[in-house]
Amino acid sequence: MECEQARNLFDTYLGGELSGSLAAEFGAHKLDCPTCRRDLALLEVAGHVIAADSDAPLLGEEFTDRLLACALGTPRPRHSRRRRLVYIGGPLAAAACLVLMVSAWPSASSAPASNDRSRETLVLDAGDEVGSEEQLLQNVKIALTHDPYNVELQKAADALRLRVEAIANGTKDGAFVLENSLKETIMEILESIQIDSAPAEDDLLAAPESSGDDHDQPVEDL
């Protein structure tokens, strides 16, 4: 067998399709011809390198969950929206807690004593409802019903209403605006009502740490 004939059989050989007498003849030429042997070895090495490749990265474990959620049309798993909840859910939750805390705080302008029990209930309920804009506004309205003359509460409600409008599209920038604005509002209110044991600012603005699914709804629902 000549080199040219052998080279024409390289692909067949590498594809594992060379058989019979042709394979024997090819093998004999390979033994005799160092040039063909080396050229073939180069292609074999390249094939081995490609076949043995283990450098390709792996998909994350969450890929399947995310894909299934998309394919089945269910809401995305919580990890993919957690960051946005921190931006939006956190400030809203802080505002809700603050509003309800203010509404329950005994002050000169507070409602008659007969409403104390109702206000206490509101505070207890707040933790369950802070993840929903609708519930949040509802709580503010209820708090205002109990104590319509509480100036701090009204200020908080107004600030909240304005900021909720600002993030109507649920954008990250809007959420930052909301967060900064609420920080200022919260600090103003805390100063005005002189709460000595006020929670730290970071705690107020942290994302709600609930194990339930109440906070796990998409941002678009807020």
């Binding site: 074999e44 081995h48 390198v49 490609i50 043995a52 283990s54 450098d55």
Partner: peptide, 30 residues
Amino acid sequence: DFATVAAEGQGAEERCANTEEAQRLKTLVW
């Protein structure tokens, strides 16, 4: 970046994966 290589099984593939010169070869091939 071909930083790490884990050989698969025995034989030619393994020989291609374990040495420094094989690393260089891998880079060239890819």
